[in-house]
Design a binder for these strands. Structure first.
Lengths: 234, 234
DNA sequence: GGCATCAGCGTACGCCGTACACCTTGGAGT
DNA sequence: ACTCCAAGGTGTACGGCGTACGCTGATGCC
């Protein structure tokens, strides 16, 4: 009986596990990323995975670092502001390809090495632009998760997609009748933003525009602090 | 046999369920908020809860609105900037009392009525300060979850507390030896921020200071846009 | 040829949310 | 006063989850 019915598929490895996990999360959302589903995709029994990752948290940590590596390196010229802006926009594009990432990162209680490297490099960009340690520090806090391309919206369609898998654009639901009565200011915004009364905060808003608007607001404020030699008086 | 061994405790109600749920989440973290644990706290069988809430998601939605009600109403005088600032700081204090709130809100895929009311009122404050619908709209997006007092930090000790229950302050862990080699810029910040080398981003950073720093950065940028009559050229 | 190592397997445990059928009770309608 | 029904609370059960633990069979080293 020569061989097993089939040559054993490339025999599993941390690398292969992480890649399969990323693919599964991309396609089905992070809610569908269970050890059982992942094992099935790999043609293996669930407990086999534990020979390559310590537990699910560590699996997710590995996935994060795989994806963080996709972010472009900082551009060398054009000044700190340009470098920071472009890198954050690159991070945002990566997050849009892997909408489960923000959930994954928020579920970790400690930073992964890949994220630390990214943050370290970002601090380096500020320092290289002449920022004091003090200002660079507070600026990093102020940008917070936006530095990784997070939208920071309160209710984010991309977040939902990350949970349950990329879905169709889904047309904006019409507002219920009493909405305009109870929330007149929101209704007014919705009307203006969409030219015909549509969803609260769904489409009708240009995500990319809002992201860059917020990012530039922050960066210009930071530039001003930098120029006037801001320092924390503590 | 006169009565049952005990007079039936105030016989459960949506109100009582929500309150018990908030208390449980406050004390044990939202990870410990299971229908089973909650039922036990109420001296009742798990399925009894479903006579008062549709499912767990709707339970959490109810909890959110209970807590959102704790946020102070907007102060009437002092201008829009002062009103917005004070209200956001109030929201932040509420979130600090209920550290599971940010997790809870992020887990909802649609805004609750209480949150919509809060947002509506916040838009009203901007509009009352002379903001155009257009600018108010984009400003709301730019503030994002910060408008509800979210810290928006990438790795937040409060988030952890919300998961597993309020814990002791936990002294900053010393950095591993090779940290300074791999992440020199972060290490530099850590050293300066804590006067003796301590944790990455843990204590040593004054959360309240960082929050207000970021908030003021944003508000001042917004004020500038407002003063120069910014409008989206779309 | 013997043996240790380790990748993968199988079973099992204790959690989770919740569907569904049942019982009990209190109040309304006659 | 009696009936009946709606609604609140119960019990059991199902399918999912992460993962502990012990086994098996192949591989590579002496």
């Amino acid at each position: 009986m020569a061989e097993q019915t089939e040559v054993r598929r490339t025999p599993l490895s941390r690398e292969r596990v992480l890649r399969a996990a990323v693919t599964l999360a991309d396609e089905a959302g992070i809610d569908s990323l269970s050890m059982r589903n992942l094992a099935q995709d790999l043609g293996v029994v669930p407990m086999a995975l534990y020979k390559h990752v310590a537990n699910k948290d560590e699996l997710v940590a590995g996935m994060i670092d795989v994806v963080v590596d996709e972010i472009d390196p900082p551009v060398a010229d054009g000044g700190w502001k340009h470098a920071v802006r472009e890198r954050i926009l690159s991070a945002r594009r990566v997050l849009q390809r892997h909408p489960w990432m923000s959930l994954a990162i928020e579920s970790q209680q400690t930073a992964t090495p890949g994220i630390l490297a990214y943050l370290d490099s970002m601090v380096g960009t500020f320092r290289g632009g002449g920022f004091s340690v003090d200002l660079a520090h507070h600026v990093m806090h102020a940008m917070g998760s936006r530095i990784l391309g997070f939208s920071q919206e309160l209710f984010d369609a991309a977040r939902k997609a990350g949970r349950s898998g990329a879905s169709s654009p889904e047309p904006p639901a019409a507002l219920p009748a009493q909405f305009a009565d109870r929330f007149p200011n929101l209704a007014e915004i919705a009307v203006v933003a969409s030219h015909d009364d549509a969803s609260v905060v769904g489409r009708g808003c240009d995500d990319q525009f809002e992201f860059e608007f917020a990012l530039d607001l922050l960066l210009e404020g930071i530039e001003r602090l930098h120029q006037q030699g801001w320092t924390s008086s503590r």
